[in-house]
Nucleic acid binder design. Structure first.
Lengths: 338, 338
DNA sequence: CCCGCTGCTGCAATCGACTGCACAATCCGC
DNA sequence: GCGGATTGTGCAGTCGATTGCAGCAGCGGG
């Protein structure tokens, strides 16, 4: 006998499996004599009994798993989020099934399909595609889900997002306080909600702080990548527009700036200041260490998991959304303009 | 009716559920009339039938999941490994359940216990503890597993490990070719197999290349961390031992060196050269960019998953182990000595 | 002294898919 | 045209845990 079953426990305790089941389940324990329950529990322990979640899941139609849909675990953004999720899921007796979509809508469909056939009880979605028809469909089919890092525009889905707008404002304000007046923005892809939100926030922050809102000062990146960031900065430089500071759409784009600085012999922060976004690991090891907006990724993951567990516990509960506050981490890449 | 069951398909196709089951399962399809099979399959498709893996698992005692035991997903070493694993698991119809142990043996036990109760079919273990009694116990209990990044000493378990010894030799040889003669080693914790193997490999590489094997040149770090690396380098520096280059046990330890360089105004690579190990992301963004030994993490993960799947398919097959070749990535942190 | 209630426990069905066995239909050779 | 081999299909039990319902004992009240 590999691992003892409920029946083994019941036999050893001299009761019916049904009684053993009730004794072992805290929710139904009240139905059984306290003395009997104690005995059953004791026997279960001594036998090293572990309920088989597969069998349990068959009857209860619950799998104890949730799906985590992310673009790519290799992107340093996601591990802390996943970790935060797992840390909340685990004590609740749940676990997460991770799939990587590589931002390929087709793959995404497939992966979600595969998760559903694995009977996940809900989905935590961190992919960044905007206005996805799949989203509405899943909603209609009653699939529970929580979005991370993006707030769906049309559909009513609970979400956990960093307060991007305030984060950008933090960055701009910091630069203004240092004395910068011509601040550029290297925006992320505008077909992603974060890219869009941050770009908008940038322009309104600039206006709010009494600076000129010059459209020539914002350049767009096609991807959230170093290369795209470098390309955008080069274009901006070549356009002849004057600026003394850059707010990058995220840290990778900021890293692209570093490449251009090296390439064109620009001294950061003496010639140009840069602020990133996300606070990826090891940014403090760069020369100069990157000033950036810090996002509490692990906390975001934790909140997302909590929201999903709530939804599982009571699917009728109205969907709640959370906006998490951000902080600015000032390091060496920002200084007063010359 | 939420999702159609096998019975629904069978009814719609006018056959018995048993027949439908056989028709749908490629392994047993031969038992049923080709025409009937075709019809059943067609009906299944049109109904959008998805076999319920929970029910299937109950009968077949297979869950389609494997457990991934890692210390901490947040450590940049692991995401690529996990990604490599998932990429192999997924097409095979398996998926991975990740648990983080934080290198806490107690937590590790618990987590593995929890994975087992979830009926995982095997374990991929990437935790670095040496000589773990748990290991032998699991073996005896017939739990299939594969180790990543470490080769168990006593027990016969398949493993995938980078060829650390050759990697270290690559690093030392590179430094020697640059003209270094006094090369130090900041070894990782010696109670981890990688720490031990690399430290040994360092000394034998030094000897093989005709350098003096001075014990004063190797310092030990208590952890694989920046702080530990910095502390070890400080101790070495304070001891007055002369050296012009450092081979760090891994990249984090090398990063610790950077901190000390900044602190003591040491110019890398002019005063001291440094080589890391692992090639974490973004090392090329450091000043100076870190020369390091590159480990094919994703490939390691993939191989590990393949090994485990093999073992699942045929548990009697003798356990195989793989040593993956490494390469040296020369960047800016190494130069000829002054 | 009997009825009815409460508190426990057991019985048996159920979840959905798989599978050994039996049986029916078909086909072949002699 | 008959016996035996060969397919193809159905029946029913199984995996392990859960749960509605029934039954039983004990107890108090009328």
């Amino acid at each position: 006998m590999q691992t003892p079953t409920l029946r083994d426990v019941a036999d050893a305790a001299g009761v019916h499996p049904a009684t053993a089941s009730r004794a072992l389940n805290p929710a139904t324990r009240g139905l059984v004599n306290a003395e009997t329950a104690r005995r059953v529990i004791k026997v279960a322990e001594s036998l090293g009994y572990r309920p088989n979640p597969i069998a349990r899941g068959l009857k209860t139609a619950k799998s104890g798993t949730v799906g985590l849909v992310i673009p790519d675990l290799t992107n340093p953004l996601f591990p802390p989020i996943v970790r935060g999720i797992e840390d909340v899921l685990e004590p609740a007796g749940y676990s997460g099934l991770i799939v990587n979509t590589d931002n390929d809508p087709h793959r995404e469909r497939q992966q979600i399909e595969s998760l559903r056939s694995r009977q996940v009880e809900g989905l935590i979605v961190a992919t960044a595609l905007l206005d996805h028809p799949l989203l509405g469909q899943l909603r209609r089919e009653g699939v529970l889900m929580v979005m991370v890092n993006r707030r769906p525009e049309s559909v009513d889905v609970p979400s956990i997002t960093p307060d991007d707008a305030t984060g950008i404002e933090l960055a701009v304000r910091h630069l203004v306080e240092l004395g910068h007046r011509r601040i550029a923005h290297l925006a992320g892809p505008l077909n992603t909600s974060t890219g869009l939100v941050r770009a908008r926030a940038f322009r309104s922050a600039v206006r709010d702080l009494g600076l000129e809102d010059d459209p020539a000062l914002v350049a767009h990146c096609d991807y959230w990548s170093e290369d795209a960031g470098a390309a955008a900065l080069r274009a901006l430089l070549d356009s002849g527009t004057e600026f003394t500071a850059v707010v990058a759409g995220n840290d990778l784009i900021a890293l692209g700036c570093y490449d251009v600085f090296a390439e064109r012999d620009i001294d950061c922060p003496r010639d140009v200041s840069v602020v990133g976004f996300n606070d990826m690991p090891f940014l403090d090891k760069l020369r100069p260490p990157l000033t950036t907006v810090s996002v509490p990724h692990q906390q975001i993951g934790g909140e997302a998991a909590r929201l999903l567990l709530d939804a599982i516990a009571d699917p009728t509960r109205p969907s709640r959304s959370v906006l998490l506050p951000l902080t600015l981490v000032v390091r060496g890449s920002t200084a007063p303009p010359r």
